[in-house]
Design a protein around this nucleic acid. Structure first.
Length: 476
RNA sequence: GGCGUGGUAGCCAAGUGGUAAGGCAAGGCUCUGCAAAAGCUUCACUCGUCGGUUCGAUUCCGACCCACGCCUCCA
């Protein structure tokens, strides 16, 4: 079964098929701007895209996945200069951190991950092409702007009324859009190339219009065309990129490459709220992965939380939600362990089964898979998984377990990544000795002493949990 | 103002023209000294409000209320 998604361009749910049958499905996603640690809002988008890619793969489609690194823009330049670092050293540092976080969140590595600064020539070539075809014009300050009035379909993706746009001189905050600053012909014309300013420091490249640097939108168009061709299958990003970023990309590509739209499917995921509020630094509710790990949550719990809501739906991120995810994962582990035991299989066996080569048809998890293929309905998928797991009337077969492993591949949930609560081995010798003496007291039916020792252990920050024939120690 | 999304149990969240998946939390029971765990089990006559269409609407239509997002470089 081929997965479907809601295509922003057509405003319809569509089945995803590669343009050329038997060829790879080509995806381009806008990657991070590396000027600091990515936050969970960024990761919501990237995790959802990861699920899309994995689901396509599990459906038997080959995928080429390109996600760029934006390593030059106002923020990267400003922050690197503030620290006295070269732009490259600065951005590589945050790029490495981004990759570390992605790995922790069990995201697959992109097929290609191009950096904007390593594709300046391609960007300049595209801008030249646009200038030559009169879709763009240079200005006195050495910048080049795209002329949106030269492209009739501008605004089609985001449903923008361009006639209103052209006369719009005031933004939502009531401020005058500083149209004159760069001598733009029209306020809505956007920069393809930015002329050099002293505040750019050492960060500039030579171009036919003098030294400067590329505008933000052109990098994606140039790199997507280079690695995926003039037209590819799907372009993704956060909903905020729909306008103006993707709108501008379409305009650039359409006018320089002579295609209607660079991508046939446009995939946008909704934003993340935190405790009901927009996430922002000023509200102090902007979390990075490390922030959550420091609070004792695991990357897998974070991933579960980020993908558990539908991608088109705004997700309200809460710590209660993180707790819920923790319990849900634990429940999943327990049910699965029971099934594996019945089949005389181990966790390791299951881990080896996690693969994109799966058959879902005829298994108890067929409906879960169908839900995932239906516009990436992860909440329903999870519901179907739990329902199937709980259905005692259908004993699970090896094929069922393999199908579940396939679903775990698609969702990117490494279900045993989180150890089931720390166990006795990690406890200090002192605690273990105490626990041992309590166990002896208990066996001697000296419950008073046993409870005293338990209280003592509790005071030292550990909890004793009795099992059938022994005990576990847990950090409390 | 323009465009768009959503309002389903305490919280999160699917869904369908015929009377509401799932997760979390909570309650009850069983079980072991106790505790925890585990197992079993209960938990929306109701789907923002008001009208309309229909034999029948949470699901279709209209109006209204509320929340949220985008509107020039924020995933």
């Amino acid at each position: 079964m081929n997965p479907s998604i809601f295509n922003t361009l057509t405003r319809k749910k569509e089945t995803l098929r590669p343009e050329q049958a038997n060829e790879a499905f080509k995806i381009y996603c806008c990657g991070p701007t590396v000027y600091g640690p990515a936050h969970i809002g960024n990761f919501r988008t990237f995790c959802v895209q990861d699920v899309l890619r994995r689901t396509l793969e599990a459906s038997g489609v080959k995928v080429t996945y390109v996600r760029n690194i934006t390593d030059v823009d106002d923020k990267t330049i400003r922050e690197s200069m503030k620290l006295g670092m070269t732009l490259k050293d600065f951005t590589r540092k945050w790029e490495d951190k981004f990759h570390k976080d992605c790995d922790a969140l069990n995201m697959l590595t992109p097929s290609v991950e191009p950096r904007a600064t390593e594709h300046i020539a391609e960007q300049i070539a595209m801008v030249e092409q646009l200038v030559k075809s009169h879709h763009a014009y240079p200005t006195a300050d050495g910048s080049v702007y795209f002329k949106i009035s030269s492209y009739a379909d501008y605004g089609k993706l985001s449903g923008l009324d361009t006639s209103a746009l052209k006369t719009q001189n005031v933004n939502s905050a009531g401020d005058l859009n500083s149209a004159d600053e760069y001598e733009r012909e029209n306020v809505s014309d956007f920069a393809l190339w930015k002329g050099y300013k002293p505040s750019d420091g050492e960060n500039f490249w030579e171009s036919p219009w003098g030294k400067g640097r590329p505008g933000w939108h052109i990098e994606c168009s140039a790199m997507a065309a280079k690695y995926l061709g003039e037209s590819f299958d799907l372009h993704g990003g956060g909903i905020d990129l729909c306008f103006p970023h993707h709108e501008n990309e379409i305009a650039q590509s359409a006018c320089s490459l002579n295609v209607k739209s660079p991508a046939r499917y446009w995939f946008h995921s909704a934003h993340l709220m935190v405790e009901g509020q927009k996430m922002s630094k000023s509200l102090g509710n902007l979390y990075t992965l490390d922030d959550l790990i420091a609070k004792g949550y695991t990357p897998m719990q974070v991933r579960f939380t980020l993908i558990a809501g539908h991608y088109k739906q705004q997700l309200n991120f809460t710590f209660k939600g993180l707790e819920d995810a923790k319990s849900a994962i634990f429940k999943l582990q327990k049910s699965l362990l029971q099934i594996l035991e019945n089949l005389k299989l181990t966790k390791e066996d299951f881990s080896e089964m996690i693969s994109k080569d799966v058959k879902f048809d005829g298994t108890v998890f067929e409906s879960a898979w169908n839900a995932l293929c239906d516009d990436l309905n992860v909440p329903k998928t999870l519901g179907e998984i739990f329902t199937a797991l709980a259905d005692k009337s259908a004993p699970k077969t090896l094929e069922d377990v393999k199908a579940l492993a396939g679903l775990m591949y698609a969702l990117g949930l490494d279900i045993f990544a989180d150890k089931q609560e720390a166990s006795s081995e990690s406890a200090p010798e002192e605690i273990r000795a105490l626990a041992q003496s309590r166990w002896q007291a208990k066996k001697d039916k000296n419950f008073k002493l046993a409870d005293e020792i338990r209280a003592q252990i509790g005071a030292l920050g550990w909890t004793v949990l009795d099992t059938k024939d022994g005990f576990d120690l847990k950090k409390s």
